[in-house]
Design a protein around this nucleic acid. Structure first.
Lengths: 116, 116
DNA sequence: ATAATATATAACATTGTTATATATAAAACT
DNA sequence: AGTTTTATATATAACAATGTTATATATTAT
C-alpha cells in the first residue's frame, strides 16, 4: 500500500489506527473515541466507519475477531496488523514533518486575515 | 460547496488557494511555489494540478484569465473568487483548531514509538 | 415506544494519480 | 546551421482511493 506524504490523505485511517493501536476496539466505540479525542470535531457516521474498517482489513492494515456477548450484540474487535503499525508510524513521521509547514501557514493566515 | 472540518480533505485545494490568494498565478508556477513552500515535500504532477484547477474553477473557487505572451506560451492566470477566499479562511480556522489535536497526536507518538 | 448500542453495504461524490498529448523557447550539442 | 534536449506551459481521459448518504437489521436499556 502506498503511504502518503502529508496530512492530506487517509486522515480517517490514521485516526482509526491511532485508536486501535492503543487498545483494540470496535466500530461503534472507535467513533466515540475519535469524537472524544478531537473534542467533538470528528463525528464519523457509522456508514463511513464500517466501510473504512472493512477496506482497511481488506488492504491488510487491520485484523478483527468477533467478541461474543450474551447480554449484548456481538462486537467485531479490530487491532492493527504489523503493516498497520508501520503505516501509523510513517503517518506520524509525516505529520511531524508537516507541522512546520502548518505553522508557517497559520502565520500567513494571521498576516492576511488579521488574526491574533 | 461543502466545507470540510479538518486537515483531512481538500489539502491540495487549500494549498492552491493559499498561493493564489497572495498573488494570482498559473498552474506551472503554482506547482513550483507549493514545492518551495513545503520544502520539497509536495511535488504536484502537472496532471494533478491542471485537473484540480479546472475543477476548482467549475465549482466556483477560482476564476482565470489568459495572459497572452509574444515570446512564451500563453498562461492561464488564476485568482480566488469571493467564495474561494471564504473557503480558504474556513480552512485556516479549521487548521488552527486542529493544531491542538495534532500536537496531542504527536505526544502520543512520542510515548508509543519512543521519539525524542 | 423510544433511545442507545452494534454492524453492514450499495450507490454516490469527491479528491488525487497516471499516462499521455500538444506546443513554444532556450540551451547544449555536433 | 541544424539537431537534440531541457524547461516552460496547458490539457484531459481513465483510473484509484477516500469519504458520504441512505438504508437495513438486530439487541438491550429506559
Amino acid at each position: 500500500m502506498r503511504v502518503e506524504k502529508g496530512p492530506e490523505r487517509g486522515w480517517l485511517q490514521f485516526l482509526i489506527l491511532r485508536v486501535v493501536s492503543e487498545t483494540p476496539s470496535y466500530g461503534y466505540e472507535i467513533i466515540k473515541k475519535i469524537e472524544e479525542m478531537s473534542h467533538g470535531r470528528h463525528r464519523i457516521k457509522t456508514g463511513t466507519m464500517y466501510t473504512t474498517l472493512r477496506r482497511m482489513e481488506n488492504s491488510g492494515l487491520l485484523s478483527s475477531v468477533w467478541e461474543k456477548n450474551r447480554d449484548a450484540p456481538d462486537k467485531r474487535v479490530y487491532e492493527p496488523t504489523k503493516e498497520g503499525e508501520e503505516f501509523l508510524k510513517k503517518w506520524f513521521e509525516n505529520l511531524i514533518e508537516s507541522r512546520a509547514i502548518i505553522d508557517s501557514m497559520i502565520e500567513f493566515y494571521n498576516k492576511k486575515f488579521g488574526g491574533n
